[in-house]
Design a protein around this nucleic acid. Sequence first.
DNA 1: GCTTTGACGTATG
DNA 2: TCATACGCCAAAG
Length: 111
Amino acid sequence: MNDGHDRIFAAIAAIPRGRVASYGAIAARAGLPGRARLVGKLLGEVPDGMVLPWYRVLRSSGQIAFMPGSRGFREQTRLLKAEGIEVKKGRVALSRFGLDGDLDHALWGMP
DNA sequence: GCTTTGACGTATG
DNA sequence: TCATACGCCAAAG
């Protein structure tokens, strides 16, 4: 087992319903600042049976990480909309659904 | 142990 | 807003 991985998974699982977070934010929350790419890598290797709100993870720009039109892209878009998150051209307005505001600590449970 | 790979991020024009 | 360039670094082979 790997602590870093577990913390990343935990950080993703901690994203509140109806909100989103960037890869970088997840990494930072997991105590691995600057390891955004590691987060993406792990999400591509999630063990079978493990359930995670992976679709709540976006790029820092709010853009969905998958190639537009791809399976993952459509799937993620669908799941986000199902939670009431607005998706325009494969992007989400982080200013409205992101965790970068003052609500961070409250929602993430951080001081 | 060296090289390639990435569901990334920031800077720049 | 879009595109391109470069930095980053753990994991996989």
